[in-house]
Design a binder for these strands. Sequence first.
DNA 1: TGCATTGTT
Length: 675
Amino acid sequence: MDTDEFIPGLHQPASLLPIAQHRASLLYVIETCPVTIIVGQTGSGKTTQLPQYLEQAGWCRDGKLIAITQPRRVAATTVAKRVASELQCPLGQEVGYSIRFEDVTSAATKIKFLTDGLLLREALVDPLLSRYSVIMVDEAHERSLSSDVLLGILKKIQKKRPELRIIISSATLQADEFLHFFENDNAIDEAEKAHNEEVNTQTGQIVKIEGRAFPVDIHYTTNPCENYLERAVQTIFDIHSSEPEGDVLLFLTGREEIETVIEMIADRIPSLANTADRILPLPLYAGLTTEQQMYVFESAPGHTRKIICATNIAEASVTIDGIVYVIDCGFVKLKAYNPSTGIDTLTATPVSKASATQRAGRAGRTKPGKCYRLYTEASYSRLAETTVPEIQRSNLAPTILQLKALGIDNIARFAFLTPPPAELVTRALELLYSLGALDEYAKLTKPLGIRMAELALEPMLAKCLLSATSFGCLSEMLTIAAMTSLQGNVWFTHDSKKKEENARWKFAVDQGDHLTLLNVYQAFITKGKKDAHWCRDHFLNFKSMTRAVSIRNQLRRYLERFGIDVSESLNTNNDVLRVGGEQATRPVEENIRRCLTSGYFAHAARMAPDGTFRTVDGKTTLHAHPSSLMFNRKADWVVFTEVMETGDKIYIRDVSKIEKSWLVEYAPEYYRVRS
DNA sequence: TGCATTGTT
């Protein structure tokens, strides 16, 4: 980097941040109102300064803590580090953070940053979250599943703990909605309401804080564009030839589009004049390894303009400095759960206005910028205001199990910020009932349901793990649960696909992907632990494998707490089990597949002669994902742990062979109803 | 036969 260049200071001295002028009024509002909604753009200092103000104002008296939740792990850690350094104290003392697998707090901690999902889990142990005097839910406008649920829980807690202070950080658009959510209370009786009015108590108040963003000029296309990839490339070269220096951020929907555009750019580079500045296209999506992602943060060589081609990861999760131009294709891939089929679909959908605004804002972080939208102004005006919240388009089985464990028996009466469609709730309740987590009155069962809720696993997988003891394969199921939790990030994607596939064969087991994953894990533990080279040679994602080890350890600790005996003497593949009953005569690999069936009976299919699969009702055609062993093997009946509809096909991944009779054996009620 | 956005416990 040139030493004679000025670097724009993104980190203002704390006294110069916009929030500093609001210190007194903010503290007053928080003192007098149970709920404060704080509207502040990036750079306002709300996340870093407000917790310090609160601590100094005495909110940590009597050993109470201030919690600030974040939707992402990195945010929780980086903000904690920043605040600790501002207060000049070692991280983990007065200021700390807590994320899964990492608890950097101590008895001295007063300000604690954590993920919203983790705070929700704390409520399982401490239902009133009584350790905290103030809870700030940051980035609540993102409307993640866990922050939505957290807000509902907080509303409930506040009735029993009126002294608790709740702070919600939101983008402008949704502030009123949050305020209304906390004010509007059907359960509150009329007498109490009248009393509140009499003493003039306000439930909540909105405080607006100006941000530190630069203006961004928005440009639209005059006509709808037929091929936004071509239009994007054209726009990049137009910017390059006529606009001053500054990097470009292009929003696309997925990996495939990104690779295509990068090739198209490369093809046109020779047409640039020899004297012209150069162009450097770079990909950015979550599927890349950390090392591959680092390139976008490095400064380009002299006279070179970086063109970052990214998915939605660059909208909120990853921030890149030096972006002056944003190109927005206007689409995003969104997941939506279909309650009638039980299948998630992933489809490109038009972005919301809120999303388009957020994308444009990425151009104005260090100086005034420009945003080129590859759609007309008329199309923009027809976009939805905000993205449909996750809670309205997700499989709610894990959420409802969690709510039940938190003591919310009547889901219909729970205060949802936006209620999920009834079919989603019904489907989730049905699944939880069929797994034995709920009884016929929709109450959590003991101990199965309670334990399933405590395990950090999706319900079907939790069921497998909790029935593993009776199949004599607990150690193996622990590994399989950890590996399938990685959701397909086991293998490292590489340019030479053939080699990658050959590497996979080394671990392959005839009966399916789960036993193959078990093999991979055992090889990693015995030969490749802490060895990134071994992983690279076998096309395995080192970071993912390390994570699997952590997940497995955590799950084992949970089981031990339940009083389940976890002996780690591994059976070898053809061992006959020394347990009682009829399974004693079975090889362990068969017991593993039976155990999988006991949790994944709802995910069963049969292979047709053409190699595709049919669901049990025969209505849906499924395809083995190319990363599955079953992509090019023969099978009859199978169960699978993942299913996703993309484009025009439904793919299943992590597939294992089973016997048809096992379905009726382990889920008699489920299959009786349907036959 | 040919591939999944992004988060989190």
